[in-house]
Design a binder for these strands. Structure first.
Lengths: 168, 168
DNA sequence: CTGAACTTTCGAAAATAAATGAAAGTTTAT
DNA sequence: ATAAACTTTCATTTATTTTCGAAAGTTCAG
């Protein structure tokens, strides 16, 4: 397979994966492009390679920076900004988990705490079913939250090594 | 807080969580409703509670069944179908992981294997950067795949207990 | 077999999200 | 100070996703 074809395939696949994870397709494609780029790219390079508009490129690049997955670079003699992605996928994964934990898990935990105990007869079937469900969900969600927190502090080798060994 | 209000809040929160995870809002809301319902509900009950149309209810219920999160029940004397959700959230989580692994991770792994080695000079900077990135991504993605596979076989107490202890 | 009680399908409409591109805003060199 | 080189914003357009609801399909009792 030629490099051009392989590159194209990879960018498409990464875009599809991203879009099924709530990250928009273009954002994931820009990320893919930067992941496999040997050097940092300018906004113009990205626009040209992915055939997208300036505004679109700009917004998605900034979203990636916001997620902590891409960083700006300056080249001496150049006025343009250049962008490069974190290449270590393990770091990418933990960074994504960290952001999603903050953006998604925390609000849910907050609501769960709020609805934790409803007024009324605790023996009432409806109230009991509700309370039991919420307690169970809260337990698992908060454990997931703690696990992600812990995972972020662990490095890949530690994780893969000891965790997978443990599973045997 | 009254039960009605708490229920409403929880359904909304679960819907929001779902929609940022590629599961559509209504599907997640139907799931939330079934999670906290003391008894199984009919399509009509769901339509009425969430104020959605028959077609919409039907499609989302079937999607939930397809994901293995909801099951049909028959009540003697009733012709209607009733639906109930798996209440153990840990099982829900592993079920979702299992489905997503199949639907999303596997296709990406397939593409990664395909683009694994491109033609041409292995010393070429572009080719080298591409191959290195792909190798790294493939490593992490396939480890994630194996981890999810292992996780699915572990039960909650085992996982949370020994894993969290290990992290300290 | 027939009709009532339900469930499923599917094209069209509505809602939502993403992309465009021109205009406005910044920064820097001279 | 100003003009060139870039970056950012945002109203519009375009594409995608979701919902609706009527029609078709199914099942079952009588």
């Amino acid at each position: 397979m030629k490099l051009t074809e392989a590159k194209e395939k990879f960018i498409q696949a990464w875009g599809t994966l991203g879009s099924s994870w709530g990250i928009n397709r273009t954002m994931a494609q820009v990320h893919a492009l930067l992941l496999i780029a040997p050097d940092s790219l300018s906004a113009e390079d990205i626009m040209e390679d992915l055939q997208i508009s300036r505004g679109n490129a700009n917004q998605n690049i900034r979203a990636l920076i916001d997620w902590g997955l891409v960083s700006k670079e300056f080249k001496s003699g150049e006025r343009k900004e250049f962008f490069s992605a974190e290449k270590d996928i393990w770091k990418v994964a933990t960074q994504v988990m960290k952001e999603r934990r903050k953006r998604e898990l925390e609000p849910v935990l907050k609501v769960l705490a709020e609805v934790r105990n409803v007024e009324g007869d605790k023996k009432d079937k409806k109230i009991k079913a509700f309370n039991d469900s919420i307690a169970n969900i809260q337990g698992v969600v908060s454990k997931a939250d703690k696990t992600i927190d812990a995972l972020m502090k662990a490095d890949e080798n530690w994780f893969v090594g000891s965790f997978l060994k443990l599973l045997k």
